[in-house]
Design a protein around this nucleic acid. Structure first.
Lengths: 109, 109
DNA sequence: AATATTTATCGTAATATTGCGATAAATACA
DNA sequence: TGTATTTATCGCAATATTACGATAAATATT
C-alpha cells in the first residue's frame, strides 16, 4: 500500500538507488553542472541560474547535501556550495562497477 | 505547485535525470542485477527473486522497459526479459562523461 | 471446450515529491 | 539599533510513486 519496502533489499541495492534517486531530477543535474563548472558557487548564484524559486532550489540543495554529493560552507550571510570530491568519486566508482558488471554473452532472448 | 518544470531544463539534463530516476529504486536495481547475472530471465523467475507482488514487479519492469534499459520478448505465455545492450552502453557512457567532467581544482570553499 | 498458467493492466490507498509563497533566522550594513 | 540581504524552513496544494489485489488477456494443457 504505497509503503516502501527498502528493508527487503540489500544495503548495496539501497545505496545505489539512493544516489540515483538524488540524481533523478533535472534541477539537481543542473545544480551539479553549475558546481562542476564553477567549482564553488554561492547559493544565490545557483538560484539565479535555475528557473525555480529560491525555496525550491534550497530544497534541491538540501537533498544533494543529505545524500553527500555536495557540501555547503557558511560565509557570513551567504552559503558557498561545492561538490564533495570524496563522495563524488565514491559514487562514480560504484556506478562504474555496476554498469561495468554487464557484458552481453549472447544469451539474450 | 507540484507541477514538473522539465521543459525549463535542457534535453540532456532531462535525459540523464530520466535514466537516474529509473535506477532510483532498489527493486529496479535488483531486477537489473538479476538480468546482469542470468543474462535472460523469465518474468516469473524475477518475481520469485523479489520480495514484491507480481503486479508490482510487472510495474517496475514496465518502467525499465519504457526508459529503454531492458527489453522483453514474448515466449508463448511467458515473457523473457534481458538488458538492452545498446541502451545500457549509451547510459554507461552518458554517466561516465557526467561523472568524469568533474575534477577538483582546489577552488572548493 | 474447459481449465490452468502467465503476465499486464485497472482501481485504489498510502506515501513521497515538487513547487511556491510566507516567514524565520542569521549576519551585514547604515 | 534599525534595516537590508541571504538562506532555510514551514505550510500548503498538485502531482507522482509505490504497492497490492482483482481482473483481463493470451497461450498452454487436459
Amino acid at each position: 500500500m504505497g509503503v516502501s519496502k527498502s528493508e527487503e533489499f540489500t544495503v548495496k541495492q539501497n545505496k545505489i538507488a539512493k544516489y540515483m534517486k538524488a540524481l533523478g531530477h533535472p534541477a539537481r543535474i543542473a545544480i551539479l553542472e553549475v558546481l562542476i563548472k564553477k567549482q564553488a558557487c554561492i547559493c544565490g548564484d545557483i538560484v539565479e541560474d535555475l528557473p525555480l524559486s529560491q525555496s525550491t532550489v534550497s530544497q534541491h540543495l538540501k537533498e544533494l547535501k543529505e545524500v553527500g554529493l555536495i557540501k555547503g560552507e557558511i560565509e557570513g550571510v551567504k552559503v558557498c556550495y561545492c561538490i564533495d570530491e570524496k563522495e563524488w568519486e565514491s559514487v562514480k566508482s560504484y556506478l562504474g562497477s555496476f554498469f561495468g558488471s554487464y557484458t552481453n554473452k549472447g544469451k539474450c532472448c
